[in-house]
Structures are given as structure tokens and as C-alpha cells.
């Protein structure tokens, strides 16, 4: 599975586990804060992705980058994917 699909799958899973529903379509330009996932949800998403993919890009960053859209979020995972 490519990173984008993996993120999508876990994203939906976390949304469900935190009793939230998707507020907009999960397209590339979807604004993360409008998706329905709250801050704890993001923490869980990042933690779950860490387990699935084996890395947490947000701890690997030297300077903090905060993604706004779903595409930016996925790009961060692509950029920091270990060789």
C-alpha cells in the first residue's frame, strides 16, 4: 500500500475510534482542521502511523512544520520516509 492510502485508512480508523465523522471529502486540498479530527485525534493518528510505518516525521524534523492540508500532511510522511 502506498503512503497516501495507508494514511487515509488509518485516518478513517482514528476518526471512527474517536467518535467523529468526516466533515468533508478527504481530497488533497482538504483542510485538516475541517476534517472532523481534533488535536487528540491527530496525536493518535501520528502515533498509529508511527507504529504502521515505523517512523514519526514530526520528531524527525529539525524545525517544526505544521501541515494545513491533507496533501501537505501526506507529503511530510513522504519526505521523511527513511531510506
Amino acid at each position: 500500500m502506498n503512503i497516501e492510502n495507508e494514511v487515509k485508512e488509518i485516518f478513517m480508523d482514528v476518526l471512527e475510534s474517536t467518535d467523529k465523522t468526516l466533515q468533508c471529502k478527504l481530497t488533497n486540498d482538504a483542510v485538516l482542521l475541517d476534517t472532523g479530527l481534533d488535536s487528540l485525534g491527530f496525536a493518535i493518528l501520528v502515533a498509529r502511523l508511527d507504529e504502521e510505518l515505523g517512523y514519526d516525521p514530526f520528531t524527525l524534523m529539525e524545525e517544526a512544520v505544521y501541515p494545513t492540508t491533507f496533501e501537505e500532511f501526506v507529503d511530510i510522511y513522504k519526505t521523511y520516509k527513511p531510506e
Binding site: 488535536s39 487528540l40 491527530f42 496525536a43 493518535i44 501520528v46 502515533a47 514519526d56 514530526f58 520528531t59
Partner: peptide, 10 residues
Amino acid sequence: GKNNSFVGEV
């Protein structure tokens, strides 16, 4: 607990 970059720990 496990360290987490967003909320401290999960």
C-alpha cells in the same frame, strides 16, 4: 505512556 509529538504522551 509513549512519547508523542502532539500531546506529550499517548
